[in-house]
Nucleic acid binder design. Structure first.
Lengths: 320, 320
DNA sequence: GTATTTCTATCGAAATTTTCGATGGAAAGG
DNA sequence: CCTTTCCATCGAAAATTTCGATAGAAATAC
């Protein structure tokens, strides 16, 4: 099957870096003859010369140098694998499924995840982003979730609201008119982009016949607005730079120009949650939590009040 | 030192993919007890449970699944390492140093290198790009070289010339004048970009007091022209798309709007060149060689004739 | 419900591999 | 020229791995 072992390569590496069999033997706590035997064995198995002994010095052959360059990262990875195994043996959590609503801003999330990765280097994070993440589906598919609407789960913590802002490209017709306020009626004639989970045919169908286009990702929604094709409500954090640059401008809506999206952090199963899950939850809350954990009350203003509740409704988030 | 071996992980993998110890034993040509022992050993050494036997089925634990996912690519890489070792043992060439003059177009080069990598998967290519690669330095630092000027080496093969074209940004003042021909005198007042090896202070100094800016890379030269700051002579292939798009335009020079750079392929040491070196040489020639190998004649028009030999001289390539 | 098949765990013996200390010879340094 | 340092090799001892046999547990067949 395998002709060589990682250990043999590791011995070779030690011989090279320490500059000789004897020193390597010392460093490896072995006899010199053992090191000699190991190198000889490695070369025999491969049928290739890796080192040449020139008098008192050990030098790599060309092949040896090339192979050791390849082997070095392998050795490191192998040690990392064993380190992870050791951590998991001591009870570390192997992986953590994190589901987030797509409106949740990525930059602070990844800032937290970076810290998390340092504190839990052996726990792998599987991140799933979902358009309108509800608590029920979140619980099914994740250990920890940032959901749009919770309200019926025990371990729930309110996070800072995400602000959606009605924007359009700076040369969009809606903005070339009077600088005065727009009403939702004014929006009717223009194309709006809505963020809709493509796997959900019902929601998508709910938009038919309207002047909605639906997209699947926040990125696409932003581009749709940026192109001038559509207007839409986009999360403030994702377009702050574009607003500053003047490429996008806020729509001067007399009502509903801003909408708050209430997000909550939910532990899928508080009973079995591992230490890494709990720590990540704490880290997210420390950064984004509102002070104190709210009781599971239905968050106010799920869909902000609207004159017609139709034409101007729902922002990039599809109506229910 | 190391607690486990790649072989143990490989056995674990085989157990999982074949769905049992017995089947794995069969596939590995071992006894079932040996497989059982290996898995037990692996788990003992790690102190972690990787698999659980549920009745007749073998299932990975969460830790086992996580670790095996990490181990799988390691196993593959390890086998690749041994495969390479086998190839090198059979005389394959470990590596090949290829030096090219920076004017040589990269796209066809990498097309050739892709084919090369398929035919010689175990030979690593170290590519060095040098601004004005002469034959002497090339020989010192490479097995194979594409040089600007050869003329005194035995194994030399002429390649297709690279065409330098005088260009500027479409809104550059040189282009907003009359559409009629420019003379080199017209260029005097404008900034030219020259490609100069930064490590060569002499060449750089030779430009002082002129309206030259020097850059280190072709990429930078292109951007300098693209920004409208400079005009310059750039290799045709690297700016073909920009010319098509209209961003850059040719300078209507009455003379010297195009310059040919003669390039040659040189084998540094024909005697000791390995099979991969020879094959790559053949592949490059097949693609880019002029018909037949030319005798080592001094290539004509090293620096194309120029009225003044000064203001308009040298293109992006610094004068000697 | 019982018999049969299929599977893994484990045991002792055998085979293989690895390690060790000792020794010899080659090269470098004093 | 002598001493030191270093690697190759040898035989013996130690450790590891493999094997076949067997026992027990779980699924399947009857």
């Amino acid at each position: 099957m395998h002709k060589t072992t990682v250990e043999q390569w590791q011995v070779l590496r030690t011989v090279i870096v320490s500059g000789g069999y004897s020193r390597a033997a010392e460093r490896l706590n072995r006899s010199q003859s053992s090191v000699s035997y190991t190198i000889a064995q490695l070369q025999d198995r491969l049928g290739a010369e890796l080192v040449v002994v020139e008098g008192r010095k050990v030098r790599l052959t060309e092949a040896g140098a090339a192979l050791l360059r390849d082997a070095a990262p392998l050795i490191a990875q192998f040690e990392a694998l064993e380190a992870r195994a050791g951590a998991l043996a001591k009870g570390a959590q192997a992986s953590l499924r994190l589901a987030i609503d797509s409106a949740y801003p990525k930059r602070p999330l990844f800032a937290v995840l970076r810290d998390f990765a340092e504190r839990f280097p052996h726990t792998q994070v599987d991140l799933v982003e979902i358009i309108r993440l509800g608590a029920r589906e979140a619980r099914a598919r994740s250990d920890l979730a940032i959901v749009f609407q919770a309200g019926d789960v025990l371990e729930e913590h309110r996070l800072r609201d995400v602000e959606l802002i009605a924007v359009a490209h700076c040369r969009h017709p809606l903005l070339t008119r009077s600088a005065a306020g727009l009403t939702t009626a004014d929006l009717g004639g223009h194309l709006q982009v809505a963020l809709v989970d493509g796997r959900d045919p019902d929601r998508a169908a709910g938009l038919s016949g309207r002047r909605f286009w639906s997209v699947n990702t926040l990125e696409a929604a932003r581009e749709a607005v940026l192109s001038g094709l559509c207007f839409g409500w986009l999360p403030e954090e994702t377009i702050a730079d574009l607003l500053d640059a003047g490429e996008l401008r806020r729509l001067p809506l007399s009502f509903g120009a801003r909408r708050s999206i209430p997000l909550s952090l939910v532990l899928a199963d508080a009973g079995t949650a591992g230490p890494a899950t709990r720590a990540l939850a704490a880290m997210i809350l420390e950064r984004d939590g509102t002070r104190g954990s709210h009781p599971p009350s239905r968050p106010a203003g799920l869909i902000p009040p609207d004159q017609e509740g139709d034409a101007g409704g729902s922002g990039p988030f599809a109506p229910e």
